[in-house]
Simulated assay, not measured.
Amino acid sequence: MRRFGEAVRPDIRYTPRPGVYAMLPLNGSLLLTHQIEPEPEFQLPGGGVDPGESPLRALHREVYEETGWSIAAPRRIGAFRRFVYMPEYDLWAEKICTIYMARPVRRLGPPTEPGHMAVWMPAETAMDLLANEGERTLLANLAT
């Protein structure tokens, strides 16, 4: 599996952290989330899979929490790893990021997760603004 981001540090013990993320295209735009903390950045909606939770259930939950939207027809389009420090959990993590393509169906309300805002933007703009290199690379591969 391809790795993005910082090099693995041999002095750190990383905790595996599986996560699911969604590319949500509609009418030439892509639905992203803008997260305020730990630093402001645009991201694909998604996050960690809780213990005992299926990846698809986590995907639906995370997209709703971060955007307020429901989704349909998710299909896996790729995966990558990142080795990062997660300050919100005080955790060094091996993030195993599985990316899905899904159809945004309906806005049910505002995001329920504090510090997140749903943002629609052209896919070309998203490629420049996504904070995560792995997400940018998968989006670019889909465009070619």
Results as ranks from 00 to 15, higher is better:
Arg3Tyr: 02
Phe4Pro: 01
Gly5Cys: 02
Gly5Tyr: 04
Gly5Ser: 11
Glu6Met: 06
Glu6Asn: 10
Val8Trp: 07
Arg9Asp: 14
Pro10Asn: 10
Ile12Pro: 03
Thr15His: 13
Thr15Asn: 03
Pro16Gly: 01
Pro16Arg: 11
Met23Thr: 11
Leu24Arg: 00
Leu24Ala: 07
Pro25Asp: 09
Pro25Glu: 06
Leu26Gly: 03
Leu26Val: 01
Asn27Gly: 02
Asn27Ala: 08
Gly28Ile: 06
Gly28Ala: 04
Leu30Met: 05
Leu32His: 02
His34Phe: 15
His34Ala: 02
Ile36Val: 09
Ile36Ala: 09
Ile36Asp: 10
Glu37Asn: 07
Pro38Ala: 08
Glu39Lys: 11
Phe42Asp: 05
Gln43Arg: 13
Leu44Pro: 11
Pro45Asp: 09
Pro45Phe: 01
Pro45Arg: 13
Gly47Glu: 06
Gly48Phe: 05
Gly48Gln: 04
Glu53Pro: 11
Leu56Met: 03
Leu59Ile: 07
Leu59Ala: 10
His60Lys: 15
Arg61Ser: 05
Glu62Tyr: 12
Glu62Trp: 09
Val63Gly: 05
Val63Ala: 08
Val63Gln: 04
Val63Trp: 05
Tyr64Gln: 12
Tyr64Pro: 01
Glu65His: 09
Glu66Ala: 14
Glu66Gln: 15
Glu66Asn: 15
Thr67Tyr: 07
Gly68Val: 15
Trp69Val: 00
Trp69His: 06
Ser70Gln: 07
Ile71Phe: 01
Ala72Met: 02
Ala73Val: 00
Pro74Tyr: 14
Arg75Pro: 01
Arg76Lys: 15
Ile77Gly: 09
Arg82Ala: 08
Tyr85Asp: 05
Glu88Phe: 14
Asp90Thr: 01
Asp90Trp: 00
Leu91Lys: 06
Leu91Val: 03
Ala93Glu: 04
Glu94Met: 09
Cys97Asn: 02
Ala102Met: 07
Arg103Met: 10
Pro104Arg: 04
Arg107Asn: 00
Leu108Lys: 08
Gly109Val: 12
Gly109Pro: 08
Pro111Ala: 05
Thr112Ile: 06
Gly115His: 02
His116Glu: 09
His116Ser: 03
His116Val: 05
Met117Gln: 13
Trp120Val: 11
Pro122Val: 11
Ala123Arg: 15
Met127Gly: 12
Met127Asn: 14
Leu129His: 14
Leu129Tyr: 15
Leu129Asp: 10
Ala131Cys: 13
Gly134Lys: 05
Gly134Asn: 06
Glu135Pro: 04
Leu138Gln: 11
Leu139Gln: 14
Ala140Asn: 06
Leu142Ile: 04
Thr144Glu: 13
